[in-house]
Amino acid sequence: MFEILVSLLALAIGAGFVGALSGLGGGVFIVPALVIGAHMPMTVAIGASLISVVATSAGASVAFVRDGWTNLKVAMVLECATVTGAVTGAYLAGVIPTVILELLFALMMLQSAYFSLRKQGDDIIEHGDPLAKKLDLMGEVPDEGGRTIHYEIVHVPGGAALMVVAGLMSGLLGIGSGALKVMAMDYIMHIPLKVSSATSNFMIGVTAGAGALVFLARGDVATVIAAPVALGVTAGALLGSRILPYANVRWLRLGFVVILLLIAVEMGWRALSGI
C-alpha cells in the first residue's frame, strides 16, 4: 500500500515542482506522469489534474496579486470565454476517444515548447479599440525603471476566441492552458507580459474549476488518486516557486523544452499506436 502511495506522491510532487519552475503549471506534467508513469486512464489523470491546477493556482496568484499586475476586469471578460470552453471540453473529455485526447495533448506540448522558446517583449498600446474602451479594459504597469506605464487593449473578440480554445483544452486535457492564455492576451490583445501572466494565473483557477466541477459531478474524479495528487502537486509547486529565484532560467527552459518534446513524442506515439 505504502509503496504505491509514496510513488504517486513522488510523481505529483515532481510534476508540481517542474510545473512551477517552468512556469507552465503542474497540469502539463501531472497528466503524462499519471498516464505514462502510473498507468492511469486518461480521464482519471485529467480529473485529478484539474483539481491540482485549482489548488496550485491559488498559491501562485497571491504573489501575482501582491505585485499589483492582475487586471480584474480583463479576467472577468475573458473568463466568460474560458468557462464556456472548459465546460464544453470537460463534457467532451467524457465522450471522445482517448486516442484523440492523447493526440491533442501531444499538440499542446508542442505549443508549450514553442511558448517557452519564443522571444518575449512588450508592445504597449496607447489607444485601445472602441470595445475595449467601452468595457473600461485598460490599466497601469511599472516598467523596468519603476515608472508607471498606461496600457490599453485591442482585439477583444480575437483574444476571447483564443480563450475559448484555451478553456476547451483545459477541460479536455486537464491543464491550466496558461501558455495559450498568455499568448491570447500578449500576442492578440497586446496586454503587457507581466499583466498577461498575472491575469492568466488569476483566471486559471476559475477555468480549471469549471472543468473540475463537470468531472466531479459526473463521478469521474477518483478520490483516492485525486486527493494525494492534489496535495503532492501543491507541495511540489510551493517548493518550486521557492527555488525559482535562485535557478538558472535559461538552462532550465532548454531542459523543459526537451521534456515537453519527449512527452509530445510519447503521447503522440501512444495515440498513433492506438489507432
Binding site: V83, V87, Y91, L213, V214, A217
Partner: peptide, 20 residues
C-alpha cells in the same frame, strides 16, 4: 452580466456532469 454568465456556466457544467 459577465460574472453572471460565468456563474451560470459553472452551474450548467455541474448539471451537464450529472446528466453526461
Amino acid at each position: 452580466g459577465f460574472t453572471a454568465y460565468v456563474l451560470a456556466g459553472l452551474v450548467f457544467g455541474m448539471l451537464l456532469g450529472r446528466i453526461g
